[in-house]
Design a protein around this nucleic acid. Structure first.
Length: 535
RNA sequence: GCCCCUGUAGCUCAAUGGAUAGAGCAUCUGCCUUCUAAGCAGAAAAUACAGGUUCGAUUCCUGUCAGGGGCACCA
């Protein structure tokens, strides 16, 4: 990776300067990401830029510009010199690197060789990782709010996998018979109540009439109904949303397999359970949290207890990195679960991400649905690709306003088409090129226009995007990248005609086009959107 | 009252302790006899307010104001 190579070159130069006492970097850690090397969008600032000189200015008691000159000279004396066409010191002390065209051109053939593997890195080192998301209740259809965690979680898992984590996707089903929601659902199923009663649920109950009519227990009826809802939910998620989960874990199964009761016993053994007001509580005050009820006055376990059991189950299955994605209404639950993970002795990484509220601006989407906006009607309305894109644009912890009318209206001009259009154009060029006899030659030395180089730079950036996103989970970066990549291609398309009389140049540019196709496709795969050959 | 998230262009959203804060939509101006104009080139337009830390703050900290969410023997 070019960014990594430059970073190493910079660090090496600084180390070498420190070694022969040209500078002193007492108390400064080079490894802590201090030698920031960033991609430059502005070519006046080179291809990559480092602010290292300004970072270490204080520690070395030297002027940043002088330092930058020293580092620049050291790199130019070193083995990595051949990477660069030019190194410049600019502004308050930036070191701007212009990478050699030769390097870029060679990278094109690497992309052609790696194909769908291109962009994959191994910072995860195969660490057993789990992302749990959606986990909507089996009491009805998913709504537009669920869509956010759904697509976000799916894409995050894809990125982590690409980054070398052994990632599983998991859906937790809140179908415990002892839970309030199953009880409520049971009342509704037997016509004793109206909780969750949407048109969809009415229909489902109608379909289940033969089975339900024999039931007297609300709990059994609720569970029976929830399993039917779950079946629809699974089908919707897998077929319509195209999200494949590795595991669907049932809360009821955790009860059946004694995970809940054994977890209670473990907590009790640790002397963390106490009785108050006829209920049994988990002592969390030592962790600075409010104590929580585990067993109610009536003896039934709370959701909190089964959630502890569920997380214990995750740990027992050997996950070293666990990511939960919850809705904003669960954020108060985070400090408690953090405390619980400590109690359970978890040594791995545990992180809860909160998907902020999705608000509706455009009002009702369809009269038939009432005022509950289902994710299904949205996907039907704007299409899966556009829907996924729409959710991926925003950072997870910012609220998002969903203007339904706008989403429908704009679907023709949606950014997703802009990116897919680049892919379609490529396919069109490649289709036409079949009539042309290929000249066997490499791209080296032939791709020299700035729009060609800029395109190659963008292609190579996929690896950086994967690396950065696997580290900070800012999935919207991928959306941004896809736009930049498409822009670079569209510019190249306008500036440089691919198929011409010049056989060698045609071959070189065809290679670049094929490489772009690969990188675009890999980016689409990460986002879970389709790559159309024609539009 | 306490806790969490957010405040960037007319609208919907990005980004960043650094060098000119980016896109799309909307508005305006150019570009199709050549691989798809669902495109390209250009104009105009933004960091809520007040302090602080810093060589440098839109970013970090504090306060104010505004919006949203949470503070159950619900999940």
């Amino acid at each position: 990776m070019i960014r990594q190579e430059i970073k190493e070159a910079v660090c090496e130069a600084v180390r070498s300067l420190a070694k022969d006492k040209s500078i002193s970097i007492e108390g400064f850690s080079l490894t802590s990401g201090a030698a920031a090397v960033e991609f430059s969008k502005d070519r006046d600032h080179g291809d990559y830029a480092s602010n290292i000189a300004m970072q270490i200015a204080q520690a070395t008691k030297k002027n940043p510009k002088d330092l930058a000159d020293l580092i620049k000279a050291r790199i130019e004396d070193g083995p990595s010199k051949k990477l660069f066409e030019k190194i410049e010191v600019a502004g308050p002390g930036f070191i701007n690197f212009r990478v050699s065209k030769n390097y870029f051109q060679k990278e094109v053939s690497r992309i052609l060789k790696e194909k769908d593997k291109f962009g994959a890195i191994n910072i995860g080192k195969n660490l057993k990782t789990q992302v749990e998301f959606i986990s909507s209740n089996p009491s009805g259809q998913m709504h537009v709010g669920n869509g956010r965690g759904a697509f976000y979680g799916d894409v995050l898992a894809r990125i982590l996998t690409k980054a070398g984590y052994k990632t599983d996707k998991e859906f937790y089903i809140n179908d415990a018979k002892v839970s309030k929601q199953i009880q409520e659902l049971g009342k509704t199923a037997l016509g004793h109540g109206e909780s969750y009663l949407t048109p969809y649920l009415k229909e489902t109950i109608e379909k289940l009439k033969p089975g339900l009519s024999k039931m007297v227990s609300e709990t059994e009826a609720g569970y029976y109904l929830s399993q039917a809802v779950l079946k629809d939910l699974k089908k919707f998620v897998e077929k319509k949303l195209d999200i494949k989960f590795d595991y669907w874990i049932s809360e009821e199964d955790l009860y059946k397999q004694s995970w809940v009761i054994s977890t209670y016993d473990i907590l009790k053994k640790q002397k963390l359970v106490f009785e108050k007001d006829d209920a049994y509580w988990l002592k969390l005050s030592d962790a600075g949290q409010k104590d929580e009820v585990l067993l109610r006055k009536n003896g039934s376990p709370t959701y909190f207890l089964s959630d502890i059991a569920y997380h214990r189950y995750k740990i027992e299955r050997g996950y070293k990195k666990i990511i939960d994605i919850w809705g904003a209404d669960h954020q108060g639950h985070i400090p408690r679960m953090n405390a619980v993970m400590k109690i359970l002795g978890y040594k791995g990484e545990y992180e809860v991400l909160i998907s902020q509220i999705v608000r509706l601006k455009g009002g009702k989407m369809s009269k038939r649905e009432g005022n509950i906006i289902t994710l299904e009607s949205l996907v039907d309305e704007v299409g899966l690709d556009a829907a996924r894109f729409f959710y991926l644009v925003k950072s997870l912890n910012a609220q998002m306003e969903f203007d339904v009318e706008l989403a429908k209206e704009k679907s023709e001009k949606s950014p997703v088409f802009y990116v897919q259009y680049a892919y379609a154009r490529i396919s069109s060029i490649l289709a036409k090129s079949k009539a042309v006899k290929p000249a066997a030659s490499s791209a080296t030395g032939l791709l020299v226009f700035s729009s060609e180089i800029e395109l190659i730079k963008e292609l190579l950036r996929l690896q950086e995007v994967v690396e950065d996103t696997a580290a900070d989970y800012q999935v919207q970066r991928l959306f941004q990248y896809s736009q930049d990549l498409a822009t670079s291609f569209h510019k190249f398309y306008c500036d440089c005609r691919v198929i011409t009389e010049d056989k060698k140049l045609t071959a070189a540019r065809l290679q670049l086009v094929m490489a772009t196709k690969i990188v675009l496709k890999n980016t689409f795969d990460l986002m879970g959107i389709s790559a159309p050959e024609k539009m």
